[in-house]
Design a protein around this nucleic acid. Structure first.
Length: 580
RNA sequence: GCCCCUAUAGCUCAACGGAUAGAGCAGCGCUCUUCUAAGGCGUUGAUCCGGGUUCGAUUCCUGGUAGGGGCGCCA
């Protein structure tokens, strides 16, 4: 059995997972700082890719942090740490030079050998490059969209949907075990209302029947008409109407349509959880009793109220209406009771519209009060701000109730799925979005997604040309493996080449960041960065040229770039084309 | 009245508390005998207003201003 050289351990962890450059530097810094006599237990410092190449490749603020505590000059502290680092053999294999600069940053420049080794890592990891294991297979549930089956998915649902899908991809890549879930509100008031809306739209012939809602509360969208037509409502007589059955069927049909659309938009779900099933399984009762046991229920004015502890600054909310039916709150508590108590997820992430924020805070408090949420069992939620629809600079009120809205499917049909996904993912959930369909149509051709896809297609085209153009080596794989041997990769010394390598190797770090902070919008930013740096390389360095060795090395770099771009796009759910 | 979110270039958005605030689009000027010009190069242009914390603030705290969302029997 071949023994690994000590040097190899620098680059890989015991499990075979690739350690990130950042993790390695952090460890080295901690060790050196401890040797210099600092207590590192509660020290928060950063190691980040340098903001400007003139500073090197990575920068740390450690000296400034320690200087503030020890009341020494940052430069003195930095020199101290650097001395320690430079006696570390492994460190010296990774880092070519380390310097203190500016207000006290420690700047690191990576060694050519290390960069060459990283390209090999990318080439051998392929589709799995960027995969890390910070999740340790913990069970994480991501719930998203969860729109009522009373109408087609809206633009707002698209924001949450694409975000949830991409976040799930990233968390999966980070080593968590993910359950993607859609909570279907197929019980309750809004379903009844849907049924009556369909009946109203179908104009039942003759006789008297009373619709128990004022007209302005009914769903007026065109899809309601369509349902009425499909269900042949007009052929019913008033006495034959079965509002409950109609409600049930209508919502089922809408749900089927939602499933069709999410599939079409490549938004994946593992579980479609029905609200009705909560009743069937007795979960409502179970949750209710748990609340009761903790004395969180109060009877007042004929209804039953959720009453959290004082000082909680939360308004009381109705759990069970005076007519004996639960509001949406109780089933939602029961649903989360199921998540935490029965299915025992280690972490639950709910992605909801900003209009639900008060509700989410309430839920959070409830589960804290029930003792089901703690530091080891987390309940996170991401609020996605609403999308406003604009037309000619004027806001168009979007709502299923008023019937004026652009559906998610219409948008995607108009601008294309990749452009739509990129467009939505670029924006942070907290940002407020004004959406102009006319503008979207005009600008879809200029969407940065094509820039990224173009870079990927260029990589593919270069590799295709290399494999077809003589030299006897038919397979790209062979070319690449050849280049990875014999230190050919050390020939990649042009600034545009090294910059590209350095950009490629931060993918695992990015995955780690996104998985812990849910900042999915960094994916499109990163993809654009890689494409930009690749373009500079493409401009400055002819890949296929006279120098056979250099050609091989550059082909390896192109292939590595293609892998990183493809992986990043796959995390976003965006197609990586071989040609455009 | 209370709660959540937002304010950065003409427009759409970036920037883990860090060094000279970055992209794309729009504008202007260049650039295809060379692996895809859906590209590249150059250029104009910005942190809402006031305090505070910090070695350092677009970022954190606080007070304003403006906008979006929400606040006991819809979900």
């Amino acid at each position: 059995m071949a023994t690994k050289s000590p040097k190899d351990k620098i680059f890989t962890k015991g499990s075979g997972e690739v350690a990130t450059t950042k993790q390695f530097l952090i460890k080295s810094i901690i060790a050196a700082s401890q040797n210099a006599g600092f207590h590192m237990e509660k020290i928060n410092f950063t190691v980040e890719p340098a903001s400007n190449i003139q500073y090197g490749d990575y920068a740390s603020n450690i000296a400034m942090v320690l200087a503030a505590i020890g009341k020494k000059s940052p430069h003195a502290v930095a020199e101290n740490i650097i001395t320690g680092l430079e006696t570390n053999k492994r460190f010296n294999a990774v880092v070519k030079s380390v310097k203190v600069a500016g207000p006290g940053f420690i700047n690191f420049s990576l060694s050519p050998e290390y960069l060459a080794k990283q390209i090999k890592n990318i080439l051998s990891a392929k589709n799995n490059y960027g995969r890390i294991d910070i999740g340790h297979k913990q069970n994480v549930q991501v719930e998203f969209i969860s729109a009522n089956p009373t109408g087609p998915p809206t633009l707002g649902n698209g924001r949450g949907g694409f975000l949830g899908d991409a976040l799930s991809n990233v968390l999966d890549f980070a080593g968590y075990k993910i359950t993607r879930e859609y909570y279907v509100n197929d019980a309750g008031e809004q379903i009844k209302k849907l049924g009556w809306s369909v009946i109203a739209a179908g104009k039942v012939s003759g006789g008297d029947y009373k619709i128990p809602y004022p007209p302005e509360e009914l769903y007026p969208g065109g899809y309601v008409q369509e349902l009425a037509y499909k269900l042949q409502i007009s052929k019913f007589k008033p006495e034959e109407l079965n509002p409950e059955a109609i409600s049930r069927t209508a919502s089922k049909m809408i749900l089927e349509d939602i499933k069709r659309i999410t599939k079409k938009l490549k938004i994946r779900f593992d579980v479609w959880f029905s609200e009705k099933s909560l009743h069937r399984q007795g979960l409502i009762k179970e949750a209710y009793e748990a609340l009761q046991k903790k004395h969180l229920i109060e009877k007042k004015e004929g209804a039953q109220w959720l009453r959290l502890k004082e000082n909680d600054n939360i308004n009381e909310r109705v759990l069970i209406k005076s007519n004996g039916e639960p509001t949406y709150l109780l089933p939602d508590i029961a649903y989360h009771w199921d998540k935490f108590k029965r299915r025992r997820f280690d972490k639950v992430i709910d992605i909801v519209g900003a209009d639900h924020h008060a509700h989410m805070f309430t839920l959070n408090r409830v589960f804290a009060s029930l003792g089901l949420v703690s530091s080891s069992r987390k309940f996170d939620f991401i609020l996605v701000q609403l999308v406003r629809l604009m037309e000619n600079g004027q806001e168009v009120r979007m709502s299923k109730r008023t019937g004026t809205f652009i559906t998610l499917e219409e948008l995607v049909d108009t601008v294309g799925l990749d452009a739509a996904r990129f467009f939505f993912l670029m924006r942070e959930p907290n940002s407020h979005m004004d959406f102009d369909m006319t503008l979207a149509r005009e600008q879809s051709d200029k969407n940065p997604v094509y820039y990224v896809q173009y870079a990927h297609a260029r990589c593919a085209s270069i590799l295709a040309k290399a494999s077809s153009a003589g030299s006897g080596q038919a397979k790209q794989e062979g070319i690449v493996e050849g280049s990875a041997r014999n230190n050919l990769l050390l020939k990649l010394a042009h600034p545009s080449e090294t910059q590209l390598i350095k950009k490629l190797i931060i993918l695992p770090e990015l995955v780690e960041d996104i998985a812990s902070k849910y900042e999915v919008s960094r994916l499109p930013v990163y993809a654009t960065d890689v494409a930009t740096v690749f373009s500079a390389f493409y401009r400055d360095c002819q890949v296929i040229g006279e120098d056979k060795d250099l050609t091989l090395a550059r082909l390896a770099l192109v292939r590595a770039t293609k892998i990183v771009l493809a992986n990043t796009m796959r995390l976003m759910g965006i197609h990586a084309p071989e040609r455009m």
